[in-house]
Design a protein around this nucleic acid. Sequence first.
DNA 1: CTGCTAGATAGTAATGATTCCTAAAAAAGA
DNA 2: TCTTTTTTAGGAATCATTACTATCTAGCAG
Lengths: 143, 143
Amino acid sequence: MNISLETIRQRFKDQGLKSTPQRTAIYKALVETTSHPTAEDLYRHVSQDYPMISQNTVYYTLGVLQQARLIREVNVGHERARYDGNLSPHHHLICHDCQSIVDVMDKKLNEISFPTGLPTGFEITDYQVEFRGYCKRCRTQKA
Amino acid sequence: MNISLETIRQRFKDQGLKSTPQRTAIYKALVETTSHPTAEDLYRHVSQDYPMISQNTVYYTLGVLQQARLIREVNVGHERARYDGNLSPHHHLICHDCQSIVDVMDKKLNEISFPTGLPTGFEITDYQVEFRGYCKRCRTQKA
DNA sequence: CTGCTAGATAGTAATGATTCCTAAAAAAGA
DNA sequence: TCTTTTTTAGGAATCATTACTATCTAGCAG
Ligand SMILES: [Mn+2]
Ligand SMILES: [Mn+2]
Ligand SMILES: [Zn+2]
Ligand SMILES: [Zn+2]
């Protein structure tokens, strides 16, 4: 999945964000991968083109992009945070062993009805289905 | 929800775990609450009866109980870990603002069919539905 | 009941991801 | 080009969790 610089600049502008090379590179990397990388993964990736970038910039940028709703964070236990540049509604499948995250696009999962019998006053906004299992690689390694 | 010491001792024995006052107190606290406490919450709670207990013991014990499948960890973003002593299959509802976690017992949620069209070889073992929203208290505070 | 031993506890030090602080640099509009 | 507001980079700080290790104790064997 490829994204043009113009598109990126436009999205940043729409959110009132300045376009910098570092920010653009981080966002582009995140939109163009399906691997749900960590901040450090992104730091290493972007470092190839911008050797002087700091980890701090990566963290700061991820925070900014998240607030602007251009990316989202994926919860996988309490290990380091994982990020997702794919905003279309979808769910995830996570390997117990290697923590790899795979997108689950099944449309049926977007039609789950909200539960009833909850504490009064609680208002649900959205939900996430998190499947767990073992990826092919980890399964063959065990055998 | 109350649990007797005999029941606790039996469960520990079944898993080959020694029964110590600290371990018993931590497990009892976790089974008898629905608040999904953090390690520190439990440390503070158990400290009332065992003032000399160390945080380390709480962390170690939670690890042991988790490996023995007597408790489970609940994922809520990447804040500190939250624990659950309720092993019956259920899901959760989390407040965006105060991070409180409420149990969702809706049986329909336990009958979701596994998605198809996944990477070959991936084997799903289980899943979790995580609802997000705003609790009553946080909603009235905003208004 | 007594002693033995694996496992548990407590205290302290270390780790590591993330956040905080700040001066210098750069984007974007005037 | 000038000005203002962000953004960046680097270093220090934070804080939950782990690691290390010297006692201590539960549970069992004798
Ligand atoms: Mn995804
Ligand atoms: Mn629960
Ligand atoms: Zn795997
Ligand atoms: Zn709340």
